[in-house]
Computed example of a mutant assay.
Amino acid sequence: MSFRPLHDRVVVERVDSEEKTAGGIIIPDTAKEKPSEGLVVSVGPGARDDSGNVRALDVKAGDRVLFGKWSGTEVKVDGKDLLIMKESDIMGVIEG
């Protein structure tokens, strides 16, 4: 099954955070916060502006992004935990 987001929606897969602190302490799963970093899986065609033209999104599939802690809606597609969010929920793209 494939999933194609509509309008200015973006599908993001969370990237796992480090399991150790800088000092070498291992963090158990129950104490970990959900990461606010992810990989864009797919994007919609874009949002319509006031004149009806489609404005393309700034992010694309494969971008590594930062998003808000409570952003998006969690869904499960083909056994993968994914987030669906609007492009405006994404704070930026990590480059390099």
Rank of each mutant, 00 (worst) to 15 (best):
D78R: 04
R4S: 10
S51R: 11
S71N: 09
G92V: 06
F3V: 15
T73N: 14
D50H: 07
D16W: 06
N53I: 06
N53D: 14
V75Q: 06
V93D: 08
T73L: 13
F3G: 03
G38R: 01
R4P: 01
E13T: 05
G62C: 11
K76W: 11
K20A: 14
P35R: 04
K32R: 15
E33Q: 12
D50S: 12
R64S: 07
V59C: 09
D50F: 08
I25T: 08
L39A: 13
D49R: 05
H7W: 11
P35G: 07
S42Q: 03
G52F: 05
A31Y: 09
S88F: 07
R48C: 14
K76Q: 08
G52V: 06
S51E: 10
G23I: 03
G96K: 13
S51W: 13
V12I: 13
E74Q: 09
K80N: 07
K60E: 14
G24D: 09
G46H: 03
R9D: 01
D78L: 04
R55K: 11
K20S: 13
W70I: 06
W70F: 10
R55E: 09
G72E: 01
E37W: 10
K69M: 12
D81M: 13
G46Q: 03
H7E: 05
E87W: 00
E37H: 14
I90K: 00
E87L: 00
I26P: 02
G72H: 02
A61M: 09
S51K: 14
R4Q: 12
A56S: 14
P5L: 02
R55S: 12
E95G: 12
G96M: 07
S36M: 12
E87T: 03
D63C: 12
K20M: 15
G68M: 05
S2W: 09
I84V: 14
